[in-house]
């Protein structure tokens, strides 16, 4: 997992494919926002956004190739942020 592990990154072709997927997902999220999903509206939007972000992280930012250390700490950071947001709702949701 040291400095030489760059072989696993994508070629131009692969990167183009990811770009294509990201653009399609953008289209989907815009289209879906036209449908009234009620309270799922925000969750659907966030789910697609997370998927897009995951693509960027995995294939543009090469988070896996950066090593286990980065993957673990990244997930921890996201979890902590999620807890900060979630725990705030112990107050807001029950006020």
């Amino acid at each position: 997992m040291e400095n030489t592990s760059h072989e696993h990154t994508l070629s131009y072709k692969g990167l183009s494919f990811i770009l294509f997927l990201l653009l399609v997902l953008t289209g989907i999220t815009v289209a879906i926002s036209r449908v009234d999903l009620g309270i799922f509206r925000i969750w659907a939007a966030l789910a697609i956004a997370s998927l897009k972000a995951a693509f960027v992280l995995l294939f543009f930012m090469h988070i896996i190739q950066a090593g286990k250390r980065v993957t673990i700490t990244f997930i921890t950071t996201i979890l902590i942020l999620a807890m900060f947001i979630g725990f705030t709702f112990f107050d807001i949701a029950y006020r």
Binding site: V30, S33, R41, A45, A49, A53, M61
Partner: peptide, 23 residues
């Protein structure tokens, strides 16, 4: 520097639906 640029993109990926797509 590329990582930094991608992060800006990732943040926008979330900002976009949160503001523009709450219809």
């Amino acid at each position: 520097s590329g990582l930094y640029w991608h992060l800006i993109d990732v943040i926008w990926i979330f900002l976009f639906p949160l503001f523009y797509l709450i219809l």
